[in-house]
Design a protein around this nucleic acid. Structure first.
Lengths: 189, 189
DNA sequence: ATAGAGATAAACAGATCGGTTTCCTTTTTC
DNA sequence: GAAAAAGGAAACCGATCTGTTTATCTCTAT
């Protein structure tokens, strides 16, 4: 049995490197050296680099999900306010040290084959986010929560990629301003 | 002197390969083989792969700019209608055969170093797009064209990345719906 | 204490990477 | 038509890639 914690540590290191430098550009040697682990150990935990990529994406899915939702829920109490707090959470994410855009968007840019499993993982992640927004919309009393969820989700995506390209987090405020307007039309007064 | 047209052809091929398979994953050998050109010729036109990447981005900037703006201007006549037509043009782009997201976003996902010249090229491209939207907003009589331009730009970014991840173009309609609402508030009745 | 699993460092394999060079042919130019 | 430039095919370079193997060491469980 492998020693506990090692696998998670490798994944943790891999996520950072993949986010910062990309997937093809990050070699197995770099990951193993950064993690302070031998190559045999790495390949004892993961059959291939592709499997490590997949495991990293799935781990990041869970971690990001928890952090983001907890952040939103700490910033606001009502569903309506939380829909807006999404963009405040995003803003602090953008301003953080290790912001390199959305890992799931970045990975898709490197693997365009529709049958590549990373694409399904990325789709699932975005669907999860959208479902979260949908639940908030429903709880907030939106007349058409599906429409509102699609709209907020697009705003969030736009803010993320704008922050990634521009290197500033100003887009979060713009997106929040639009979102506030959308809430006024979708939510009962 | 190099034979005319060769350089452009290499760039054309490189753009397609970079968009479809990414930048690190696309080797010089693949580009040269696909372009039907010898390696010597390729390196006669470009000092390095990095220079070819840069030239490809700059070429794509020009081509995309022309195609996109022409498409928008053919779809609508008034500035206000053109602001909405942006999302119709985007939609046909998404539905096209060779849609792999925005090349300038994809390249940034692979090169995070802020001093890398590809980042400046990408920033410039996005600023150009935003300026175009700003001009339309101003011509349409927006009270605050800067705000409106920022908003439309974020909607466009969100639609692009949503289409890339989901593999569908439905986000374009959602973004257009939001844009229409924004125009109602920013533009005089 | 000892057997066995897990870990390490390192060499190794075969392929591919970006880039250069060589030799020869084709094209342009005067 | 001849000199000069450009292109093509392929060998070649050193480095790096993913992945395997070997030999040695260090835990841990009985």
């Amino acid at each position: 049995m492998p020693r506990p914690g090692r696998r998670d540590h490798i994944i943790e290191v891999a996520i950072e490197l993949f986010c910062e430098n990309g997937f093809h550009a990050t070699g197995v040697d770099t990951i193993m050296r950064t993690a302070g682990v031998s190559k045999k150990t790495l390949y004892n935990h993961f059959r291939s680099k592709d499997e490590l990529i997949l495991a990293s994406l799935q781990q990041h899915d869970g971690v990001f999900r928890n952090n983001f939702m907890r952040s939103v829920e700490q910033l606001a109490d009502t569903p309506r306010e939380r829909l807006l707090a999404i963009f405040d959470s995003a803003r602090t994410w953008f301003d953080g040290q290790n912001f390199f855009g959305c890992m799931f968007v970045n990975v898709i840019g490197e693997y365009s084959d529709p049958t590549n499993p990373v694409r399904e993982v990325s789709r699932n992640f975005k669907q999860m986010l959208r479902r979260y927004i949908y639940e908030l919309s429903r709880q907030a009393g939106a007349e058409n929560p599906d429409e509102l969820a699609d709209e907020i989700a697009i705003l969030l995506e736009g803010a993320i990629v704008t922050a990634q390209v521009s290197g500033t987090s100003g887009g979060a405020k713009t997106a929040k301003r639009i979102a506030a307007q959308l809430l006024d039309t979708h939510l009962p007064k």
